[in-house]
Design a protein around this nucleic acid. Structure first.
Lengths: 154, 154
DNA sequence: TTGCTTAGTTGTCAATGCCAACTATTTTCC
DNA sequence: GGAAAATAGTTGGCATTGACAACTAAGCAA
């Protein structure tokens, strides 16, 4: 039984998706980085705060796994954030090796402001879409994320 | 005249777009990085090769401008790529300061393979979409890129 | 010619990222 | 209980990325 050759049309669309996704990532990444810097955060610090705020206290290893960073990198990121008073941490009772890391008031404040700035920016981008088109765009991005998560790269 | 307050619905969608775009960027970025590493390239090297192949020879400053990197960073990136024989360069006749940088045969080969791998991956993701839905997804990403490019962040 | 601009390189500093070695704790298992 | 294995974090080393400033060399303009 011959392996099904990828249909030409599908292949063309997959190729176009690559180009579009690459362009999308570059643009939004730079925008987010610039905005984050304006609020005294790096992109990784913003991701970390996002996680800490939405999921509550986390261990260093847990953060590293979610953010797909090496635990050594995560350790240094958290060090830096603690030095800048963006996070607090404590030793949980049940495991004296671990760190229980939470966003500090200052960390929450900065993240909230950053998010507001980006959301305002997004609102400008979405202004000329109809409400239905806006919802479609968001649904679509979510779908692509879901599928990529479900089907890890080879 | 009071500044128009952003409509609540628009604001909610803009917020959802932020979350969806962030998730999208993280997933695709990691996937692309892992794939690139598999072919002995970094993400920036892949972007650089993409540019060099699609746009022909480029100056260092031109590359830096397009990729939004500092010229010092670009200089070191190109140094590394030249060391690994991914690019070639020469001095143009009319300006003996400048570098005319092109992708080498090896650079083209690696980029082609990387692109094929990612496109294959994308094809898997798109398999369950109808052709119309696929096209819609691509069009939508392109639109978001266009708008973000047209409306720089504040 | 003199001075201004442009192209690229190099130095410094900090952050990111990977791997490996290390300490300290907890868990497993005999 | 106690030795061995697993786990949580830290630190050191190395390379890359990225910002900024100082520098060389070449082109351009007055």
């Amino acid at each position: 039984m011959p392996a099904a050759r990828t249909a030409p049309l599908l292949r063309r669309d997959a190729s176009a998706l690559y180009d579009a996704a690459t362009a999308f990532i570059r643009i939004y990444q730079f925008r987010d980085r610039d905005q984050a810097l304006r609020f005294g955060l790096t992109v990784i610090q913003a991701y970390t705060l996002d996680l800490l705020i939405s999921a509550g206290g986390q261990s260093l290893t847990g953060l590293a796994r979610t953010l797909r960073l090496d635990k050594s990198t995560m350790s240094r990121v958290i060090s830096g954030m603690a030095r800048r008073a963006l996070v607090d941490w404590s030793r949980p009772e049940h495991d004296r090796r671990a760190k229980q890391i939470v966003a500090s008031a200052e960390g929450k404040r900065r993240y909230r402001r950053l998010r507001q700035a980006i959301v305002r920016d997004n609102a400008r981008l979405l202004l000329s879409y109809s409400p239905a088109a806006r919802r479609a765009a968001i649904t679509l991005l979510r779908q692509l994320v879901q599928r990529a998560e479900g089907a890890p790269p080879a």
